[in-house]
Amino acid sequence: MKTLQKTLFLASFLLIFACSSDDSSSKDEERPTISIDYANGFPQGCEELQRGETNTFRARVTDNEALASYSLDPHHNFDHHTHDDQIGDCELLPLKSSVNPWIFMENYTIEGGVQEYEIAIEITIPEDIDTGDYHCAYSITDETGWQSRTSIDIKIVE
């Protein structure tokens, strides 16, 4: 039985020390960044956009390794369900229910695994949609699967 005891002790120590053999391969542990906080960033917090007008929605994105995809989802905030993450609060219009809200949901990919990119999406806001409080949500992913988001409170006016 002595041999058995020794073997078991040895096995247990081997297992414990096996933990320390971390080869720490270089993993991507950084999220991409997204910002509209620069001169061309669009829209800015509390900005008023006109129906029928064509704008280029711009945001700057970066990543330590490789950017992958982004999405843009401006949606109505008539029910005040959320607010933005920009500095300063916008005055919201009274609550109301939607009749024909603007729905825009698009996903895009960034080719070439670049580390810096400027999102630029040209959109014409339809003439027949409900005016009022809207919420403009951008998201960005890198190739590893990290995501960052930002959102801006805006108004669509006649």
Binding site: N107, S139, T141, G145, Q147
Partner: peptide, 23 residues
């Protein structure tokens, strides 16, 4: 102590793609 291998561990993997503007 223990040592363990999974041939095919199932987990929910965040991809870099979007659908309906959600990751």
């Amino acid at each position: 102590p223990f040592v363990n291998f999974f041939d095919n561990y199932i987990y929910l993997n965040p991809t870099s793609d979007y659908k309906e503007t959600l990751q």
